[in-house]
């Protein structure tokens, strides 16, 4: 198990290999469809994502005192952000993409080129992951995008995930997809 601490260096990220389990500690930003569209279209970002982690997640957040508390925060389907992701990695210097289900060819190429990895979090494990979120540091776009789609700035501790796409172009999801396509062909032919 490798530990990754914010800010995430290019060197640390390039040393990761698909299949490795990592624990992320420090700052993580959340973003969903509206944020990705905004950023990829050249929209301004009120915080710096450089050497940071962008988590595909729309959390359940409740007010607590002056601030907020996250009660559920599992990953959302990353494939929806494929049209925007490579552009965001290039423009904003994101080092970790966290989500579920993997991404496409453009993101894979951007990971290799700019030094970024894709991490798979456990889909649906929202309570477990929320436990790893120590603090809500801030939020942007709350009014424009709503609570679910806003950009939340979180402090996490030992957030576990698996490297799904590394900087060498290896993609675990592609491998499973290809092998299962073969198995499917056989089962369909069986009759």
């Amino acid at each position: 198990m490798k530990e990754l601490r914010y800010p995430f260096s290019e060197e640390a990220v390039r040393a990761l290999r698909a299949g490795e389990v990592v624990q992320v500690t420090g700052r993580v930003f959340t973003g969903r469809d509206r944020l990705h569209k905004h950023l990829a279209g050249g929209g301004a970002c009120p915080v710096s994502l450089r050497d940071g982690a962008l988590y595909h997640c729309g959390p359940v957040v409740v007010p607590q005192g002056e601030g907020w508390r996250v009660v559920a925060a599992g990953p959302t389907t990353s494939a929806r952000e494929e049209p925007y992701m490579a552009e965001i990695v290039a423009r904003h210097g994101v080092r970790l993409i966290i989500g579920k289900g993997g991404m496409g060819a453009a993101t894979k190429a951007a990971c290799a080129r700019y030094g970024c990895v894709y991490l798979q979090a456990v889909g649906g494990a929202a309570a477990l992951i929320a436990q790893r979120i120590k603090r809500v540091e801030g939020v942007s776009f709350l009014d424009t995008f709503g609570a679910t789609e806003a950009l939340w700035q979180l402090e996490v501790e030992a957030f576990e995930a698996v490297v799904g796409i590394d900087t060498c172009g290896r993609d675990l999801f592609d491998e499973v997809r290809a092998a299962s396509a073969e198995a499917l062909r056989e089962l369909l032919a069986r009759g």
Partner: peptide
Amino acid sequence: SLVANTGLARQQATPLCQD
């Protein structure tokens, strides 16, 4: 992890999944 998440959500009465 899924089983652990299930136990935790029940115990805390928080959503199993954020969706």
